[in-house]
Write a protein that binds this DNA or RNA. Structure first.
Lengths: 225, 225
DNA sequence: TAGATTGTTAATCGATTAACAATC
DNA sequence: TAGATTGTTAATCGATTAACAATC
């Protein structure tokens, strides 16, 4: 987290003589919303209301924490009863910007890119894999999860169509920065980086990094201490 | 993260009349160590020393933050000069418990499990994939990344050999909890969960969760705000 | 010495949590 | 009404950061 000017929501700015909240929710709250959402989607068919206690249990948080999170959303429950499952589900979806389906591009059709493209769970959560790109001739034209791998050379034109929302980067570490620069130049603003390398981007571009080795190393620490 | 009693390092306990640090490093520090390590490994062949400024840039942190992190390790630099690249690299490795190679088991030989097993980057960072397990007859016996997929039925016996350090869980969401329970019963204490479902474990088991949809949802929030 | 960089202090910030009045 | 659960306050905790004396 932090760094590179990205994902710095929750900051405040001194403007005149008052503090004006700048960009919405505290970071910690945003991270919990998808966890709440998952429970709510499971519950939507069977229950009408849910308590902060239930939500806390599912999200690994404290019930007071949940109530504070939801009041940040200006979402209110009913004392003695709890929160409306469906209304809260819809509210969180709209807050996360996934009340509409989102179209995702995957860059890199190696092992990881293919695994991600084939992963059906995305569609269930509102994300459609709308394209897979690579630069290796032997991969271009092959079909993955029902999508044809395209030549990265055509990426800029395709992206310019404005039909896509975000990019998942699944290229080798040594290509990550170069490809990222290219994405940014093409106008991509949201990048989920699976390449095992941190990339630098301008302040107005959002990058999240997911790295297997890093996770294992952190886990290893907690195993040996 | 938090919740389920895992990864709660950095707590302190009131004992008698003094505060005794309980389990080592602050969580935020642990998360940054792998980032420092990555830079140090890159630098080890070309430079002898590195400044807190360089480390901060690579890790997306503040220089003062870096210096504080390293002093938590009781690792000291030289004023005016910086920190010894190799000594710091070795110190962090030992702190993370990866001064020896670690043997990792992957459970689930679907798309994701296969991608992870094939991912060469792990070996470079000190982790060896020492086994892949599945319960589907059509997958058992197949070879992935030079390793034969074994029947999950034999997992308990294999794990009892004591040769393995951690488990990567790459099974479908609906199997995650059940498989996790089984791992815990077999004596697994470190689990990296790639299944798109939170799992509950006893307090002394460490779980880290990595979930693609969650990451995309968080990213989506920062795109729409 | 002069310049560079550490190690640490003190202030601030952001997040968590217990507790409880409000109220369905 | 009695029981349940919210919404919010106040205290605490953990993390960040600017600043600067120490010192290589």
């Amino acid at each position: 987290m932090g760094g590179f000017g990205v994902l710095d929501a929750g900051k405040e700015r001194f403007q005149g003589y008052r503090f004006i909240p700048m960009s919405g929710l505290p970071k910690a709250t945003v991270v919990r919303l998808p966890r709440y959402l998952r429970l709510l989607e499971d519950l939507a068919s069977s229950r009408d209301t849910v308590s902060s206690d239930d939500l806390a249990l599912a999200a690994g948080a404290n019930a007071a924490n949940v109530r504070r999170d939801l009041s940040h959303l200006d979402f209110h429950g009913v004392r003695g009863l709890g929160y409306s499952v469906r209304e809260l589900r819809d509210r969180i979806r709209s807050e996360l910007g996934i009340d509409k389906r989102r179209r995702v591009i995957i860059i890199g059709a190696g092992n990881l890119g293919r695994a991600l493209a084939n992963y059906g769970g995305l569609a269930k959560r509102g994300f459609d894999v709308a394209g897979v790109y690579d630069n290796a001739p032997k991969r271009i034209g092959k079909s993955i999860g029902g999508i044809e791998v395209r030549d990265i050379g055509g990426f800029e034109d395709d992206w310019a169509s404005g039909e896509f929302d975000m990019v998942i980067l699944a290229v080798p570490a040594n290509a990550a920065q170069q490809v990222t620069d290219r994405l940014v130049r093409a106008g991509v603003r949201l990048i989920l980086n699976f390449a095992p390398a941190r990339v630098r981007v301008p302040d107005d571009i959002q990058v999240r990094q997911v790295d297997l080795s890093t996770e294992l190393q952190i886990l290893s620490y907690y195993g040996s201490s």
